[in-house]
Simulated scan of single mutants.
Amino acid sequence: MNINLKISDLSRILTGISVIAVLGGCASMTSDPALKSVLAKKDTVKVTERVENAKVAWLAHALLEPATRKYLVDVLAAEPIPKDWDVLDYSTAASMTGDLLAGSVNSGLGNALGATSLVVGLLAGDGSKAATSGYLLPANIDGTEITSAEQARTVAIANIKGKVQHLASNIEYGVSCVHDCNGFNPVYLFKVSTNRQQRFDYEPESFSITIRLDEFVAASNTKQLDSLAAGFPVAWRTIGHHGAMIEMRDKLKFDEQGELIILPARSQGLSVSVNGWDNHANTPFGRYVHRQLLDNTNHYMGNKTNSMFVYNGKVHYFTTNGYWNAFDRIIIN
C-alpha cells in the first residue's frame, strides 16, 4: 500500500530541519547548559526492517492517521504467530483484522470478533492525539496468574515503581516519594548525590517524576495486534490512548518549608502535576532517564511536542503522522 506524504507533513519535516540547522548554530552561542543540551545535535540510527517499524508504529497508532494504521494492520496481520500462542485466538483474529479492514466484514468470524467496533476502534480519529502511552500485560507474569483488571493495575504500578528505584541507583541520585506513594499517581523527587561523577553536559540538581497509571481492562478488539507488536500474548492493558503517563520536571518550585510544590489535578481523571521545566526529553540526560524507566516491552509512551516515542529502552524520533515508518530513527545520545 502506498501512502502519500502530505504537503503539511512535508512542510513540518522541512521546517524541523531548518529549525535544527538554526538551533545547531545557536547551541554554540549560549552559556546555559540546559538550553545548550537541548540544542545539541541528536545522533540517530535508522531502522530499515519493515515489520519492526510497523510494530513500534502500531503501539503509537493513536498519533497516526487512519490510512497509516490500515497499512500497519496489513503488515502485522501477515506475520506468523509464535507456536506457543493460542493459534485460534491470535492468528485467526489477526488475519481477520486485515480482512475486516479490507472490507470483508460480513463473515461469521468477522461477526464473532465484533466487526463494527473493531473497524471503528482502529480507524477512528484523524491522528491528532498529542500524546499516547499504555501498559500491556500477559495473563501470567513471573509465574503468577493475573485474574482481574485490578490485579493487573497493581502489578503494573509495582513494576513502574521498581523502575524508579532502579533509575535512582543507576544515575546515583537520591529519590523519595512525596505524593500518593501507595496509589497510582505517585510523585517522586530526585536529588543528586554528593561525590557523584557527572556523566552528561547538563544534569539537574533535582528533578521530579510524576506517574499516572489508569485503570486496566481485558484486552479485546486489538489484542492480536497489540500482541504481535509487543511480542507476547497481551491479556490486559490500560484503558484509553494515554493510560500510563510518566512526566519529568526540572527547575522545580518549593514552598517556604522546602517541600516540593505539587499542583492539583485540573479536573477529575487527570493526574496532579509538578510545576517546572518539561523539555528534558530533548536532552541526553532526559532521554537516558526515559530509556531506563521504559526499558521493557510492556510500557510505551510518546508525544508530538518532543517528537519522540519511547519503548523497550529506545527513544524513537517521530517525524509525521501520515507515514507508516514515522518512528524509524532511534536517538542514541
Rank of each mutant, 00 (worst) to 15 (best):
V120P: 05
L122W: 15
L123Y: 11
G125M: 01
D126R: 04
G127H: 01
A130V: 10
T132D: 07
S133R: 04
L136H: 06
L136Q: 02
L136I: 04
L137R: 00
L137F: 12
L137C: 00
D142R: 15
S148P: 09
S148N: 06
A149V: 05
A152W: 00
R153A: 03
T154N: 10
A158N: 05
N159C: 06
I160L: 14
K161A: 10
G162D: 03
K163E: 13
V164G: 03
Q165E: 05
L167R: 06
S169E: 10
N170W: 15
V175D: 14
V175I: 13
S176F: 00
S176Q: 12
S176A: 11
H179K: 15
N182R: 09
P186D: 08
V187H: 04
V187F: 05
V187E: 11
V192D: 15
Q198H: 12
R199P: 00
F200Q: 05
F200W: 15
F200M: 03
F200P: 02
E203P: 08
P204K: 05
E205P: 01
F207T: 05
T210C: 09
T210D: 06
T210W: 06
R212N: 15
L213G: 03
D214I: 02
F216Q: 01
V217W: 11
A218P: 07
A218L: 09
N221L: 13
T222I: 11
S227Q: 04
S227R: 00
A229L: 14
F232C: 04
A235G: 10
A235H: 11
W236H: 03
G243D: 04
